[in-house]
Design a protein around this nucleic acid. Structure first.
Length: 580
DNA sequence: GCCGTTTTCGGCCCGACTGTTTTCAGTCG
């Protein structure tokens, strides 16, 4: 069984145990075991063979056995028995807001409810309100939760969530009662998708701030409205939480609600080791109680830096707060200088009206120049992508000449590189022959069809393309479309190794719906010597600016300017491409 | 189920909000 499937089994087990009312820490152990396995870069088969699985933090004796059995046989008796003991339709009940394992168990014991359908029927018949601990309001909330389940569960692309959040933060900052306001949560951590928005505000007068927030025009439902916290749902299901705290607690609240949960757990452990307890309210003596009116924070912190410093750490950039090594690095010393938007001086992989773009070569060049870019790489589709009006040899040759003439004309300061996004055909050969490819300044090779090959076939196909001496970079490695299409089966580790061995770049496709190759792979890959290009894959002039989304996730992948080709000035890029 | 220079047993992050309660359990993040 493949690693990704084993991860899914472990997550399944955690859910089933949760439903059965098992020890929550056991549930967490399966969840963190699943995460540890997921984050493991090496080949699972190798790790098992070397007897190193149990050395990974979060994977103990029991999980080593279960993972090994699943890897070798694809089956696990423990899992099968567990599944047989819980109706599959019950797992779905966990996706309803305000419904957790305890209530589900009560519903099952009292009314035999084992699915969303039977729950809906029981609510509509008024039977749920009769169960002790439940009431009319709960019944109402459950029905609304069932009705809006899909919208509530939906995650949102970072780019879109940011567009919603930005005006709200601005609006909060303009309120006279507000001293400071920030977005926190996965939005601040630059996750590729965002579940809900978190706003943290410093104010000594929370009420008007809360009232402004729950009165926002886009709001359709207020789900909480308390002393320090309000929650609303916007049209489309996006949820937003606002927390208003006294100014002296702002840094603690911002740290806490930025997360991630795993990062917070590590930070709190660190505090405990030093005799303190860390929460969103401050850093307190370990043995003090929240209800104690005299409780005082051990430090006054204006900023997150001061909290980290008190725990003997450097400030951790929010993008890195995923418990993927940042605690250890922050405790030892400084973080690398992560790439910033200003470091990007040019962009490759962009389309024009010659294939499926919506702006001409000149319009794209003008737009790149307006963005202050030194160079623009054009890479229209090749002929196999006929659905995208891919260029055949004659049209590509003409485009190359046009680009050379445009550069020679001196009309723009922005230099244009002539490239192609050439299709990787099913067998790994390319859509143009080497003579054609040799005339280009650079070549992006991408898979656009036959997406259902086996992992072995797809990996071999892509590696064959990487091995072609004319291929400069690999486009959108897994073909994923976030929240819409899963990545195709490909062994990412082997592709990375092949790219390094052949001096081929792997692109970080910056389209907010792709962000491919995934940020989780970049740290280890760049340490091994992989070079990155942050490519907007722009199909119109507005699309050029999408490289910003790529910079966000590049930072999540610990990338520095030295790891990224388009942080290099024009002359160096020309040299890299071997062109004049 | 995991983990350990205070540990191989007894912990495991902490607190707000809601609803249904007469003091708290459940859920969420």
């Amino acid at each position: 069984m493949l690693k990704t499937d084993i991860v899914a089994v472990l997550e399944d087990i955690a859910e089933l145990l949760e439903l059965k009312g098992e020890n929550p820490f056991k549930v967490r152990a399966y969840q963190s075991g699943a995460r540890a396995l997921e984050a493991m870069e090496e080949e699972l088969g190798d790790v098992i063979a070397d007897d190193r699985l149990g050395k990974i933090k979060g994977i103990g004796k029991a999980l080593v056995e279960k993972i090994t059995t699943l890897h070798e046989t694809g089956e696990l008796e423990y899992y099968d028995k567990l599944r047989d003991s819980v109706p599959a339709s019950m797992i779905e009940l966990l996706t309803i807001p305000n419904l957790g394992p305890k209530k589900i168990k009560k519903l099952h014991d009292a009314l035999g409810i084992d699915s969303i359908d039977s729950l809906r029927a029981a609510c509509e018949a008024g039977k749920v309100a009769e169960i002790p601990g439940f009431g009319a309001k709960t019944e109402e909330k459950l029905l609304s939760g069932i009705a809006n389940r899909e919208a509530y569960q939906a995650r949102h692309h970072w780019w879109e969530a940011a567009a919603v959040a930005e005006p709200i933060v601005e609006g909060l900052r303009e309120l006279p009662e507000v001293q400071r306001a920030e977005s926190a949560g996965s939005l601040r951590r630059m996750r590729e998708t965002v579940g809900d928005l978190d706003f943290i505000v410093a104010s000594t007068d929370p009420k008007p701030v809360m009232d402004w927030f729950v009165g926002l025009e886009e709001m359709v439902e207020v789900t909480a409205h308390g002393q320090t916290k309000s929650s609303v749902r916007f049209h489309g299901g996006l949820q937003a939480d606002l927390r208003v705290v006294p100014p002296e607690q702002f840094a603690f609240a911002l740290l806490h609600f930025t997360g991630s949960k795993d990062h917070n757990v590590r930070m709190r452990q660190r505090a405990l080791e030093r005799g303190w307890s860390l929460s969103e309210w401050g850093l307190f003596d370990k043995d003090s109680k929240p209800e104690d009116p005299d409780r005082q924070s051990v430090i006054v912190a204006e900023s997150e830096e001061e909290i980290y410093a008190k725990l003997d750490m450097k400030w951790v950039p929010p993008e890195l707060r995923e418990d993927r090594g940042e605690i250890e690095v922050g405790a030892k010393g400084s973080f690398p200088q992560l790439v910033e938007v200003e470091d990007i001086v040019g962009v490759f992989h962009n389309h024009t009206t010659a294939s499926d773009g919506r702006n001409t070569l000149e319009e794209m060049t003008a737009a790149a120049e307006a963005l202050g870019l030194e160079y623009l790489g054009i890479a229209d589709h090749s002929k196999a992508s006929f659905q995208a009006s891919g260029l055949e040899e004659e049209r590509l040759t003409a485009q190359i000449e046009k680009i050379r003439a445009l550069n020679a004309s001196g009309k723009f300061k922005c230099h244009v590189f002539a490239g192609s996004e050439v299709d990787i055909l099913k067998d790994g050969s390319l859509d143009f022959d080497n003579d054609m490819l040799a005339q280009l300044d650079y070549v992006v090779a991408s898979v656009h069809n036959a997406l259902t090959l086996t992992e072995e076939e797809m990996t071999a196909r892509i590696i064959r393309a990487i091995e072609n001496e004319h291929v400069t970079m690999l486009g959108h490695m897994t073909g994923r479309l976030l929240l819409r299409r899963e990545p195709y089966a490909v062994n990412v580790g082997k592709v990375i190794d092949a790219a390094i061995a052949n001096n081929t770049i792997i692109e970080l496709n910056a389209n907010p719906w792709r962000l491919d190759m995934d940020w989780r792979h970049w740290k280890a890959a760049s340490e091994k010597g992989l070079l990155c290009a942050i490519n907007p894959d722009a199909h119109d002039t507005d699309g050029l600016a999408l490289f910003v989304a790529g910079v966000n996730v590049a930072r999540k992948g610990w990338l520095e300017p030295r790891h990224i080709l388009n942080c290099r000035p024009l002359a160096e890029v020309k040299q890299y491409f071997g062109v004049e």
